[in-house]
Every structure is written in structure tokens, then in C-alpha cells.
């Protein structure tokens, strides 16, 4: 049983991503959307736990549309970009979806 966690707040001003990371495990995935995409940057305050979870096999995705809108492509590190059809697929391949906002 796996959960898709969506996060839409920047970790530079909000604890949503930190709280999400504390509960991620197993087959879960994280999708950063809206201002959550700032959390995928190399300078992210959550970089350490994020890297640790990725090493444990948790997939971390960033919604490409929202990252592009914010000019983040050169700042993102270690995350996989997905489009909206990819977002839908992730929603189907995980049993439930928790939105952190």
C-alpha cells in the first residue's frame, strides 16, 4: 500500500514538506507542485532528508509546468520532472493521495 504525497508550499517558509518527509516510507512518492517546487532546488532546506529518502528508494517528482513557470530548471537537483498526465498516472499507481498544503 503506497501513498502519493503532494506538497504545494515552499519549504523556505512552511513546514509542509518537512512534515511530509517524516511520514514517507516504503513505496510512497512525493510530488512537488505550485510553490512546493522550490523544495526541489539544490538549496532546499529539506535537501538532506530528501536525499536520504531518495537513497531509500522514495521517488521525488516535480511538476514540470510549475517548475518551468518559476524558472527553476537550473536549480532543481535529483528530482524527476512529470507533466499533468504523469501526475494522473502517479495518482493511479498509488493507493491514496495525501495533500500537504
Amino acid at each position: 500500500m503506497s501513498t502519493l504525497h503532494t506538497v504545494n508550499k515552499s519549504p523556505f517558509e512552511n513546514n509542509s514538506l518537512t512534515s511530509c518527509l517524516q511520514l514517507c516510507s516504503g513505496e510512497d512518492s512525493i510530488l512537488l507542485i505550485e510553490d512546493g517546487t522550490y523544495g526541489g532546488c539544490e538549496s532546499s532546506p529539506c535537501r538532506e532528508p530528501l536525499t536520504r529518502l531518495m537513497e531509500d528508494g522514495i521517488n521525488v517528482y516535480v511538476l514540470e509546468n510549475d517548475a518551468s513557470a518559476r524558472g527553476l530548471h537550473t536549480f532543481l537537483q535529483g528530482v524527476e520532472l512529470v507533466d499533468y498526465p504523469g501526475f494522473v498516472k502517479l495518482s493511479c499507481t498509488h493507493q491514496c493521495i495525501q495533500s500537504w498544503y
Partner: peptide
């Protein structure tokens, strides 16, 4: 605890966030 929350999520069909 965190672990118990993970189990809780697994025991339910739908999440309302």
C-alpha cells in the same frame, strides 16, 4: 507516532486532506 500514522493511512481507503 510517525510509524503508527503510516499504518493508519494504510488501513484506510480514502484520505481527506
Amino acid at each position: 507516532t510517525n510509524n503508527e500514522v503510516r499504518t493508519l493511512i494504510q488501513q484506510h481507503d480514502q484520505l481527506l486532506s
